[in-house]
Design a protein around this nucleic acid. Structure first.
Lengths: 238, 238
DNA sequence: CGTACCGTTGAGCAGGCTCAACCGCTGTGG
DNA sequence: CCACAGCGGTTGAGCCTGCTCAACGGTACG
């Protein structure tokens, strides 16, 4: 087991030097302890990790790749509550059941930890537990930011905010050889379900952004921001 | 200090008998330990508890009343990320600063706990900390549900979901003498900012619900659900 | 008693949804 | 090797709903 891939990224409770940047919360010792409980799983893209309302015996941590957490509403509409990246945790249960379904967006490496064993470890190691508390708090704030993004009136504002989120959260797996090129690993339909708009609206809006010279798409799964100031303005505008 | 008012309500990780119902997470011992650190504060309605980006030295727990957590966007628009009720925690920091502003919606009793002292306590008492972890996880799920609500297309669906949330979360302070009458302590503008719609849309929609005989408003701050099935249908319909 | 603010309703407009067609790519089977 | 089906993405046409601006009544509070 390569424990160095076991990471927990978040902005700490306390003030640190770099503002607004997620850092690695785990020490080498923490990672070794967790690695003792974890099973590493490699998954091809579009693999269902688990389905909502099934028995939650494990907690998952992402070593690499992207996972989406979603719910299928009674109407048949799908709602993506979050994209999860390297250093994120998922699978926290309610009443012993998963609340969302999760599926890999890209090829992914995921660590699976039995929930009972993790609970024991957290009870024995309050310092490690505090880091998990920090991580969950971080994800709570991310969820709140997502809500703010979805409640934006204009489609352009939602898309702009979404691209900035990808730049912030997804840059750990971005292509290093092409600076300022951001990976967009999900489909347009995924983006639509995440932002609460139709896939057509996503497509129309990105096309307009391209025509206005604000961004460009080298290929379907990468975007380059040409005019950050204008994108920023769109994101800020209500 | 009346420690019995110190509560932490959430749905536990593990399976329990009553599904979907938040329960008290703290034992008497936990409450006493917390009470030793906490200062009780009584606040009139519309009191700012703290402002975003200020130094976060305390964590807050609600003994009674309703608090809103919000952010003012650059455009001047206000976005309410959540309403907080009895048994909720707020003030979890990022980089030593509060991320949102909070204000009381009703008269409220709030416990203020120094963050350093709480951290020490949580380090000494891993079992208590696990309960806080459960609580934050619960609030994360609430935030996700909120996102799903906001991404609903129709105003009627959003309002219906909002009323069901009030019925679920707010019933601890509902008027016992008028069964099935749900307290709506916030203004229409608050509801609008929470749901990401205009105050006019809230007003128009509630009027229509009244005309259709689905709900009635005995007064401005209470609602009675006359046709739960129809409301449910509206909430489910996309 | 006056003054705000909250809530409601109306008129007009714009933006996004729905339905539909079309293109390009991929994988599959004849 | 090619035909075809399926999916993801894009674009167009028309409709609908919620936003904006505006006016007005009621209530709470100084």
């Amino acid at each position: 087991m390569n424990a160095s891939a076991l990471s927990l990224r978040a902005i700490p409770f306390d003030a640190v030097s770099a503002v607004g940047v997620a850092t690695q919360l785990l020490t080498e010792r923490h990672r070794e302890n967790l690695a003792g409980l974890a099973t590493s799983m490699h998954m091809p893209r579009r693999t269902i990790v688990y389905r909502e309302e099934t028995l939650a015996r494990w907690i998952f941590m992402i070593a690499d790749g992207v996972v989406k957490s979603y719910r299928d509403l009674p109407s048949g509409k799908r709602c993506i509550v979050g994209f999860l990246f390297r250093g994120d945790v998922f699978g926290l249960a309610e009443n012993g059941q998963f609340v969302n379904s999760t599926q890999t967006v890209t090829r992914a490496t995921v660590y699976r930890i039995p929930v009972d064993a993790l609970k024991d470890l957290l009870r024995r190691d309050p310092d490690l537990q505090l880091r998990f508390l920090c991580k969950v708090t971080h994800q709570l704030r991310e969820a709140q930011r997502h809500t703010i993004g979805v409640s934006r009136r204009t489609t352009a504002g939602k898309i702009a905010l979404f691209l900035k989120m990808l730049e912030r959260d997804g840059h750990w797996h971005a292509d290093r050889s092409a600076p300022r090129s951001i990976a967009v690993p999900m489909t347009r339909a995924d983006i639509a379900d995440y932002l609460g708009i139709s896939a057509e609206a996503v497509s129309r809006c990105t096309s307009r952004l391209v025509r206005r010279g604000i961004v460009e798409f080298p290929d379907r799964y990468h975007v380059r921001i040409l005019n950050p100031a204008e994108l920023e303005r769109l994101a800020a505008a209500m």
